[in-house]
């Protein structure tokens, strides 16, 4: 079987998800055994536009990026969104509560940016708001094990199984003390699992970086906030760190 050709591309992001691939350490050797990495700007000089699988990191923020992404989609047989910025927009969407011109004015002041493509931004989009995405590898950053699962699945010709259940499932298996019991607001109950509940396991509440699975009923939210004496405003703010515009709560 011919090895699939893989290319990595990055848009607006911290590039931490690509770093997770470098962090596979010795296993990178396995990776380059099963796929041909033809483009990975962060670690290699060579580049080719002939690839089967395009792996996209980052959110789409500018017309010049949108054009580039569409070209990549044309070239690729399979397109994978890598990490929260790509899969759901992630923290890059926090700024969508303001218009691009408001944000630009606040950031660059009165500096003249007219006609400069670099600065021409629109509201943050996730990759699937621009092109069709075949598979998502969620998380901020991605979970290396899940990356491996997705890549091995694609290489074996099967659809990767991405969990469709909430973080609580993994958190319970890890026997963590529920963060609600510790007076913290955790998004684990409504966030897609697959991270092995890494934040709650390390004593920090889930921020929902793998995307919201279910919008709970208002009665349910009220019950929980009351039971654990938590603040509605805090919940709203926490929900929009990664999921701005998802309207998890009214």
């Amino acid at each position: 079987m011919k090895k699939p050709r893989v290319a990595f591309f990055d848009f607006a992001s911290c590039e931490g998800c690509q770093l997770q691939i470098a962090d596979l350490e010795e296993e990178i050797l396995d990776l380059i055994n099963i796929v041909d990495v033809v483009s990975f700007r962060e670690v290699m000089k060579e580049h080719s536009d002939d690839y089967d699988i395009a792996i996209i990191e980052g959110s789409i923020m500018r017309p010049i990026d949108e054009g580039r992404l569409k070209e990549i989609r044309e070239n690729a047989k399979i397109l994978v969104a890598l990490g929260a910025c790509a899969t759901i927009g992630g923290i890059n969407k926090i700024r969508n509560q303001w218009t691009p011109s408001e944000v630009k004015k606040e950031v660059y002041g009165n500096y003249n940016l007219k006609g400069n493509d670099f600065f021409d931004v629109f509201q943050t989009k996730a990759v699937d708001e621009v092109v069709k995405v075949d598979y998502n590898i969620h998380g901020c950053p991605i979970n290396r094990d899940e990356f491996k699962k997705v890549i091995t699945s694609i290489a074996m010709g099967k659809n990767p199984e991405i969990p469709n259940y909430p973080v609580c499932v993994e958190c319970k298996k890890n026997e963590n003390i529920c963060l609600f019991e510790l007076g913290k607001f955790c998004l684990g109950p409504i966030t897609r699992a697959g991270c092995n509940s890494i934040c709650p396991t390390n004593g920090s509440p889930c921020d929902g970086c793998r995307g919201i699975l279910k919008k709970p009923e208002v009665e349910c939210i009220n019950d929980i906030l009351e039971r654990y004496n938590l603040d509605y405003e805090e919940m709203k703010r926490r929900c929009n760190i990664y999921n701005y515009g998802k309207e998890v709560c009214k």
């Binding site: 296993e27 396995d30 909430p166 609580c168 499932v169 319970k172 109950p189 009665e219």
Partner: peptide, 29 residues
């Protein structure tokens, strides 16, 4: 109506025993 569908109730239950089976393959295939 108020269920979060998280199945925490079954995870912590001493008498629940249902399981799923999955194949995992290492990166060397």
């Amino acid at each position: 109506d108020r269920c979060l569908e998280c199945s925490s109730c079954t995870m912590v239950c001493p008498t629940c025993y249902c399981y799923d089976v999955k194949d995992e393959v290492s990166l060397n295939l």
